[in-house]
Design a protein around this nucleic acid. Structure first.
Lengths: 345, 345
DNA sequence: ATATGTCACTAAATCGATGTAGTAAATAAA
DNA sequence: TTTATTTACTACATCGATTTAGTGACATAT
């Protein structure tokens, strides 16, 4: 019952020819090395019949190529990252690569494990949304000349290929939009992270706030504890600061938590509280009211990442200059979460 | 700059001992094969210093073990599957396995590709939510004695380990709940699939409908086209059959589409239309009204899957009887999507 | 007749591990 | 003293591919 997997050696033996010949034929080198059409066809036919599939483990050991790309994201369940994953997978599939995902949970240890795991298995390249404290690991990859693209966030002190959104601008515009709608006490709900994307969003928020001489309210919560404590923290913020009239959320999952808090407090959006989210979410247009969001151009970002990585893989030797791509965010304005002016009118 | 990865051979050469010795030491066999403590420590120290990491590709080629499990699900972006993925990953990590995900998009060709890809790389086992037309591939895995657990759906004609929800019962109860709430023209919105999970949900629906002598309305839509056409199809159903007063959705993503259709038609839930979803969704409790759902006990299912697979991996030789686990679903009743009786009262 | 060139293949080294079957030296048993 | 046993290692085949450097047979050139 249990069939042993047939190897190239078996094929060669069955046809009474050398392993080398079979290998050449299977790799389409018949012409190049001068193997007769007759034999080529015979081998191909036999391979077809036996259903022989080369052992890619062995192949990779020999060649050092796996035709696999590793994509490390925060969480496969997060709609932003899931969408990126979808695009990147599709694009790489088109180029003959398989793609493998890993959820880092934004934890350095977990990311490190995944990097090691896949590096040991010789993936041909990495696309990573790095957690904090991963500088050393990233540097290692760079030193080993493993193709690498960072996205969403990066390290200022390490020069890598990377693709990010203009987080500063996006956040600034979001807060400005709230201000334009006459909101004056705007809090930023974000996570306690020094990662560039969150830092830039914070800076964008602060810029807009200070530009209009408003008072900043900032809540930074622990990423790992969002699921447990976010609703409560936001509830506290709102009860302790009844003057707050708008919330700008640093990420879409925080927005969902915030909406729950608002709901539980029996406050209304946008009348009592204006809401804008950084990062869009499928359900934002379904919720009542629907939620305005700063959206990242995910399709475009994905394309850029894929191109950067393929460039690195294809460049044989010559030193290639690292490239940084920054794409602008777009505002998905859905009035019903922020129409204070019309509301009051 | 570009460091060559150090191999066991390098380690052996540097210490002037044999490769075998190094291998034994690294695999903790010092005692067993009688290698002196002095040498053992010396090697371990040197390995530590050089930062040598064994090449798992080579190791796997030799041993046929990878300590990797492959989980194939419909779509990493789907909340049901994403949650399963999260649990399964966690459980396997605890047991020293890494887990690799693949999105099948419920397409046989894509699933086949993924199975082949990972089988070639000798993953130690598969957990699969199989698409249709995959019987031959599953049978192959079975013949090759590759550890395998199916979940969510299965093939009646193939005996495998599997874990599923009681879809029939769940659907029956959902429809019955609508009937109890005085809804009388209840449509089933499902996908055009003969897969067991969808088939059983259909049967459960039909059972309840016929038990009360009601008229069935069933819309089956193409899974691949849900994103494009679902809203329109549901809109049509509702406009062409104004007597319909409740919708039972076969999956949570269909529910989201249905709610969009209902919204666009300016109908209200639960007054005009009662709604129950098969499979829960994080946002169902956020939506207004919040949506009642038949929930699968994902944590428990995940545990069962992991246990079944580990059993297979651990069983050395003796024929093990395949096991089928069916877990009951639970109803997450959220009155506001179905409270017709109270509403009219 | 000898050298040169093609043609159609093949032997064997290699990738980096594991693990079986040994060996040489020291010690114990007869 | 000879044999058996133990101790502390090591040589080498192996997993299943790729790839370099040949080889033998035949044709053509000089």
């Amino acid at each position: 019952m249990k069939k042993k997997r047939v190897s190239i050696k078996d094929i060669a033996a069955q046809l009474n020819i050398s392993i080398t010949t079979v290998s050449f034929i299977l790799n389409g080198k018949s012409k190049e090395v001068g193997i007769s059409t007759a034999l080529t066809e015979k081998v191909l036919k036999h391979v077809e019949e036996t259903g022989y599939k080369p052992n890619l483990l062995a192949k990779s050991l020999r060649t050092g190529k796996t035709k696999i790309i590793c994509l490390l994201i925060e969480n496969i369940a997060d709609p932003f990252f899931a969408t990126v994953a979808g695009y990147v997978e599709e694009l790489f599939n088109q180029r003959g690569y398989k793609i493998i995902f890993g959820s880092t949970k934004n934890q350095a240890a977990k990311t490190r494990e995944l990097i090691d795991l896949f590096r040991d298995r010789h993936v041909d390249g990495f696309i990573i949304a790095p957690s904090e404290k991963l500088e050393a690991d990233i540097t290692n990859l760079l030193n080993e000349s493993i193709p690498l693209v960072l996205f969403d966030r990066y390290y200022k002190e390490i020069e890598t290929d990377r693709v990010t959104t203009d987080n500063y601008e996006g956040a600034y515009n979001a807060v400005k939009l709230l201000i334009d709608q006459d909101y004056r006490n705007i809090a930023l709900i974000t996570i306690d992270s020094e990662q560039t994307q969150m830092h830039d969003r914070l800076l964008g928020y602060e810029k807009a706030i200070s530009e209009y001489g408003l008072k900043p309210y900032t809540v930074k919560m622990n990423y790992q504890k969002v699921e447990q404590t976010a609703v409560e923290e936001i509830t506290q913020l709102l009860t302790q600061n009844p003057d707050i009239d708008a919330l700008f959320f640093g990420t879409n999952y925080l927005t969902l938590k915030g909406l729950q808090a608002i709901e539980e407090l029996n406050l209304s959006v946008p009348g009592d509280i204006g809401v804008i989210s950084f990062d869009d979410h499928d359900v934002f247009k379904l919720l009542k009211p629907n939620i305005t969001a700063v959206a990242q151009p995910i399709a475009k970002m994905s394309e850029e990442m894929v191109n950067l990585l393929l460039e690195q893989i294809d460049v044989t030797k010559a030193e290639r200059t690292k490239r940084q791509v920054v794409v602008p965010s777009t505002m998905h304005v859905r009035d019903s979460s922020i129409k204070k002016i019309n509301h009051n009118a």
